[in-house]
């Protein structure tokens, strides 16, 4: 039993960066822009978070930096797709390539200047991001460990996802942005400021993706910078958006499932089931493919990609 709780605990941890990425991409897609640059924005956030954390030892500053740079990456994307009306798919791919290069280039530079060639976060910083139990709650058997003894970023991710869910469904601003994402011409005719709404939500989504990157470099990396740390998780987040049928609250569940597949290999008793490691490494991607097939078969109208997604809006187009 304890082993199973350990497994779920690890799954939540591994699912957190995916949850950030998925939530950010849901916000972006709901406003009508498919941003395939999640991987790139996560890389940018990973580097900026680590860099600021490394130099200031301040967690709040590190997270702000990760958010800002993720939002900055998204801002470039927004400028290209909303203002210049460039193709969304191509722009997103370019952002992924840019972000990956950005993080690895400056990451390498950081390695070069670090003592012993290993940039390492300070003790105080590592303490701030370490898992801490919430008093009383964490001492509940099983549940306490599972739900109430995580590092602070896990809670931030969950709260962000829930707030985004409320934002989308129950607020006026959420209705406005969903309308823009579904049918920009209708939203425009209703007098909404399409450009502002798109810019705002795309950069917000990018910022949240950036936080996901920071989680990877600050927590999964064990305090040491590692080039190539994001390693495809941004792409899984893009697929998770479909799995979660564009609902941040469902993304909570989806990211747990995918987090579980990434850590499964450490929790399968090797003496009972003997499968090569490569199989486990492959697993999240195989499941991604299967999920994409299943979700494309059964779709409700509400749980589908926003109709305006991938199409840039130009009022005077005929």
């Amino acid at each position: 039993m304890m082993r199973f709780i350990d497994f779920l605990y690890a799954a939540i941890k591994a699912g957190t960066p995916l949850l950030f990425g998925t939530t950010g991409e849901i916000i972006t897609e709901k406003t009508g822009n498919l941003n395939l640059g999640v991987e790139g924005m996560m890389y940018m956030g990973a580097f900026a978070g680590f860099f600021v954390g490394y130099h200031t030892s301040n967690l709040a500053l590190a997270l702000i930096a990760a958010f800002v740079i993720g939002a900055f990456g998204a801002l470039i994307y927004a400028f290209l797709t909303v203002t210049l009306r460039a193709n969304q798919t191509v722009t997103g791919l370019a952002l992924t390539i840019f972000g990956t290069g950005f993080a690895n280039f400056f990451g390498q530079l950081m390695i070069k200047h670090a003592p012993n060639g290993t940039p390492k976060l300070s003790e105080t910083f590592m303490d701030a991001v370490s898992a801490k139990g919430i008093p009383l709650l964490s001492s509940i058997p099983y549940v306490g460990k599972l739900l109430f003894s995580h590092n602070v970023l896990v809670y931030i991710a969950i709260i962000v996802a829930i707030i985004c869910g409320i934002y989308l469904k129950y607020t006026r601003a959420g209705l406005n942005m969903r309308s823009v994402g579904e049918n920009p011409a209708a939203a425009d005719a209703a007098g909404l400021n399409i450009t502002f709404i798109k810019y705002f939500n795309i950069t917000l989504g990018g910022g949240i993706c950036g936080l996901g990157g920071a989680y990877i470099s600050l927590i999964n990396g064990g305090g040491v910078w590692n080039n190539g740390c994001v390693n495809g998780q941004g792409w899984i987040a893009v697929a998770l958006v479909i799995f979660a049928s564009w609902s941040p609250v469902k993304a909570l569940f989806g990211s747990l499932v995918f987090g579980a597949t990434t850590v499964l290999q450490y929790y399968v008793p090797k003496d009972i089931i003997e499968i090569p490691n490569a199989f486990y490494v492959m697993l999240p991607f195989v499941i991604t493919a299967i999920v994409l097939v299943i979700t494309s078969i059964k779709q409700t109208k509400e749980g589908a990609q926003p109709l305006g997604c991938s199409n840039n809006y130009f009022r005077e187009e005929r």
């Binding site: 129950y170 607020t171 209705l175 579904e182 049918n183 909404l192 109709l307």
Partner: peptide
């Protein structure tokens, strides 16, 4: 028609108006 298919009639009607400025 400039309507958003997946939204309810009410949500389409209030779109762009000043009522319900924060929460629906």
């Amino acid at each position: 028609f400039k309507l958003i298919e997946v939204h309810s009639a009410a949500d389409n009607i209030i779109l762009g108006s000043k009522d319900n400025p924060f929460f629906l």
